[in-house]
């Protein structure tokens, strides 16, 4: 599905986002940052889950390793963010490649279970690694930046740029030669291989991109919360959101996760403030199960069905008109 001009829309979104930081208060950047974080995670998850058909339960592991890459770099040399972000992408991309290389030859469910296991092993490693603060955690001290209203405003703008970049990459993959190969793998891996698709290589590309993108989503997290410890970095809600957002939006195109993330992310930020954060989690869970069971194609699928239905109705009406005339 081509939504008219992508790049002008992306540029406009970015400009509006930057302008907004001068008019709105701190709360909105914080909420906005979290929505964007969810959006990147959902987009990343969908490259493997939606395009390729492999479920990753260990999203929190990739996210947290992105965050911990930042912590390590900060503790060692405190480099600027434009070094930190690519470093997190490289670390988590390699992690994705490794996990994929080890388990993608097996059935899909084993990959899903292995990712879950990997997240827990990584969490244990971080808990036991004194250099990054172990179970207690590590502090990050941020400095003011020029031009921006606050550090959070700065992070929000960075996150906005990263989110737009991630969506653009997912969109490119969706419509590229690689994307068509991934779709064939998702539909039938054996048939895809026999049609000349190098399935293992494409799956590895897919996991690597997914891992790198999740690492990027986590790279700024330590600067955002200024304090990182394993339990919150590896939080299950990160993994659940990464699955729920694409499932709710629709997994077959790049648009679905974007819609799902914006919608579910906003609902979450709203309920967290206005109701309670536990209930907020319950809503996510119920929406996930509900959509998976009742509307497997997500909101995008529902919209397509509705469009097809109205077209049919219109044609029927036209047919009736010509019959009477």
């Amino acid at each position: 599905m081509r939504i008219a001009p992508f790049w002008p829309l992306a540029a406009a979104t970015f400009v509006i986002g930057v302008a907004a930081t001068f008019y709105f208060n701190e709360y909105y950047f914080v909420a906005g940052y979290l929505v964007l974080q969810g959006l990147i995670m959902a987009t990343a998850w969908n490259i493997l889950g939606g395009f390729t058909g492999y479920v990753n339960f260990g999203s929190a592991g990739f996210f947290a390793m992105g965050a911990y890459t930042s912590v390590v770099l900060y503790t060692a040399i405190n480099p600027p963010l434009f070094v930190v972000i690519p470093a997190a992408a490289v670390v988590c991309g390699l992690l994705g490649l490794g996990a994929g290389y080890l388990t993608l030859r097996l059935r899909g469910v084993y990959f899903a279970i292995a990712t879950l296991a990997m997240a827990i092993v990584l969490e244990t490693l971080m808990v036991n690694w004194e250099y990054v603060g172990g179970a207690i955690g590590a502090f990050i001290i941020t400095e003011d930046v020029p031009f921006f209203a606050s550090y959070n405003a700065y992070l929000f703008v960075l996150m906005l740029a990263l989110a737009i970049g991630s969506v653009a990459l997912a969109r490119y993959l969706n419509f590229s030669r690689i994307g068509r190969g991934l779709a064939a793998i998702r539909d039938d891996e054996v048939a895809a291989e026999c049609a000349g698709v190098p399935t293992l290589r494409l799956k590895l590309i897919s996991t690597t991109v997914m891992g790198a993108m999740m690492g990027v989503a986590g790279a700024l997290y330590p600067y955002f919360v200024t304090f990182v410890e394993p339990v919150s970095a590896f939080s299950l809600i990160v993994a659940v959101n990464a699955i729920a957002m694409p499932m709710i939006g629709g997994t077959s195109t790049w648009v679905g996760p974007v819609i799902g993330a914006l919608l579910l992310g906003s609902v979450q930020e709203w309920t967290k403030v206005n109701i309670s954060s536990e209930l907020n989690l319950l809503i996510v869970g119920v929406l996930l199960v509900g959509f998976v069971a009742l509307a497997p194609q997500g909101i995008v699928g529902l919209a397509q069905k509705f469009a097809a239905w109205t077209r049919e109705q219109r044609e029927k009406r036209r047919g009736d008109d010509s019959a009477t005339a």
């Binding site: 479920v55 339960f57 499932m247 119920v286 199960v289």
Partner: peptide, 16 residues
């Protein structure tokens, strides 16, 4: 549809 959707279903149940 058990592979992808079924896994997400049980994951959701676990979370709920």
């Amino acid at each position: 549809r058990e592979s992808l959707a079924g896994l997400a279903f049980f994951f959701g149940i676990m979370f709920i």
